[in-house]
Design a protein around this nucleic acid. Structure first.
Length: 478
RNA sequence: GGCCCUAUCGUCUAUCGGUUAGGACGUAUCCUUCUCAAGGAUAAAAGCGCAGUUCGAUUCUGCGUAGGGUCACCA
């Protein structure tokens, strides 16, 4: 038995309530969650609402709804208490203040004596001289007492090059210019992300920081803060970017990234969304592509997370969604189809279901497909002679074939479309399939393009099928 | 511009120095078929460039190139 106590993995997803979350945010949440689940760890949902100006009303509810829809469940967080509650940064100001005071006592934090405009001038000057702007070059000689009305800055403890390990990227490093006296607490009393997330991760026992790679450039700053606080940083798990479909830009709200719940509205399945997103930056190796939640959690591991970015591709998402639809039980499929096909009688819809499933990649497509491809099942088609006739065949010919088929159908086995096909095919083959089947399908559907006539017969049922053939016959006869 | 990261078919990817560089999406063609789908089959399609290490590099190293990120009292 090992004496080493293995630390339980703790991850978190920490969005800011500035609107909806898009696929990028969901992917981050998904990886953090999968990592915790795979290792029987803990997954925390924390809200980072320290920028009151950017806050958008209703965001938190929206985020919760999004994650719940996807089935990404948190063990502790905004609405589930835990030892580190609350999980909302605006309610944790005393925690940040406590650590700020520790830093002040150590002489590693000081109030910024300049106004915003003065700092702006420094920055502009550096830009003009084509140098990187470093606030610490303007650091005052002596520090006043922080009364909370000025921003509190970190005094970088040691200006040096940092080298650190990232579980995905390996060894990373940056020069001294990546270090600066950044703001810990803003003049409005709220901490910055840079400060708050470090305190929260520490207090909440986060072991793995899973986040996208836009934060790499800031890591040296964080390391200097960890040093100042004399704490050991968590493990960094940096995710590759997700690029937008059009350009090569990182996917973001400005580039038209959609609200994740829009995909729900469009009829995508949450499990398909997760399957698609888990593959945006991770792959277990091998050729399997369709995974259930349980399957990919079982396989998930950091070593297979990619370094390079991936472009978001909705075509593939659609394909994955189709595969997931086809794996659903008939009951679920039926429930999902019904809202789009309310007017269809239950028994008819039951017989039609496999055909419907066959023709969609996404339930939302039924909005446009149903009126075109299926409506004739419940609306009797309007027929005219021209449409019924196959190529240059005659009215008489069509009429006799329809009457013959009607005879066959009156005695046929209506157990399945296959059985109907078996009854009709011998006649169709000996009289020319087009000559028989085109008028038949037309009388049943009234459409040039449709499902095959055997399936239509089966779905309509014997009586309705024969009725429609009769109507067609009378059109031809007149 | 400084700093940092990344680099295999159009797209998502497999390969952990030796492969005819494999799969999937999409595309094309064919089969199936009365039509439209679905399905099946086949095809086209990739190691960014240049050096180096090595018996041998897609794989390791360097340089270049390209793309991305970041330089806020935003996260």
């Amino acid at each position: 038995m090992s004496t080493q106590i293995e630390k339980k993995i703790v991850t978190r997803f920490a969005p800011s309530p500035t609107g909806f979350i898009h696929v990028g945010g969901v992917r981050t949440a998904l990886y953090a969650w999968a990592l915790a689940r795979k290792n029987e760890g803990k997954f925390i949902l924390r809200i980072e609402d320290t920028d009151k100006a950017r806050e958008v009303e209703g965001s938190i509810a929206h985020i919760i709804e999004s994650l719940k829809w996807l089935g990404i469940e948190w063990d502790e967080g905004i609405d589930i208490g835990g030892p580190n509650a609350p999980y909302v940064q605006s309610q944790r100001l005393s925690h940040y203040k406590k650590y700020a005071n520790i830093l002040i006592e150590k002489g590693l934090a000081y109030p910024d004596p300049y106004t915003e405009d003065e700092v702006k001038v420094f920055r502009k000057k550096a830009e003009e001289e084509k140098r990187a702007f470093l606030y610490r070059e303007h650091r005052p000689e002596s520090f006043g007492v922080w009364d909370g009305t000025k921003p509190l800055r970190l005094k970088v403890p040691v200006v040096k090059s940092y080298t650190w390990n990232d579980d995905v990227r390996g060894e990373l490093s940056a020069g001294e210019e990546a270090l600066d006296d950044f703001i810990l607490i803003k003049s409005d009393g709220y901490p910055t992300y840079n400060f708050a997330h470090i305190i929260d991760d520490l207090e909440m026992g986060v072991t793995h920081i899973v986040r996208a790679d836009e934060f790499i450039a800031s890591v040296p700053k964080y390391l200097s803060l960890y040093d100042a606080l004399e704490i050991t940083p968590p493990i960094f798990v940096t995710l590759p970017p997700i690029l937008g479909e059009e350009g090569t830009k990182k996917l973001g709200k400005r580039d038209g990234a959609k609200d994740i719940l829009d995909y729900r509205e469009e009829g995508f399945l949450p499990e398909a969304m997760l399957n698609f997103l888990v593959l945006m930056g991770w792959n277990p190796g091998g050729e399997k592509e369709i995974f259930s939640k349980e399957e990919f959690i079982e396989l998930f591991d950091i070593s297979h997370i990619h370094k390079a970015g991936a472009m978001f591709n909705e075509e593939k998402l659609l394909w994955i969604n189709k595969e997931h639809i086809r794996k659903q039980s008939k009951e679920i499929q039926s429930q999902s189809v019904k809202p789009f096909m309310k007017d269809y009688p239950d028994d008819l819809l039951n017989r039609l279901l496999p055909t419907v499933i066959d023709r969609i990649s996404n339930y939302g497509q039924l909005n446009s497909i149903e009126p075109i491809e299926f409506r004739f099942f419940i609306n009797t088609p309007k027929l005219d002679v021209e449409k019924i006739l196959w190529k240059d065949s005659s009215k008489e010919e069509a009429l006799s074939h329809l009457q013959a088929v009607k005879e066959i159908l009156s005695k046929a086995d209506f157990l399945s479309s296959e059985s109907i096909k078996e009854s009709i095919m011998p006649y169709a083959e000996s009289n020319g399939k087009g000559n028989v089947l085109w008028p038949l399908r037309m009388s049943l559907s009234g459409q040039e393009k449709s499902v095959d006539p055997f399936t239509i017969c089966y779905v309509l049922g014997r009586d309705e099928a024969i009725n429609r053939i009769d109507s067609a016959c009378s059109v031809l006869d007149s």
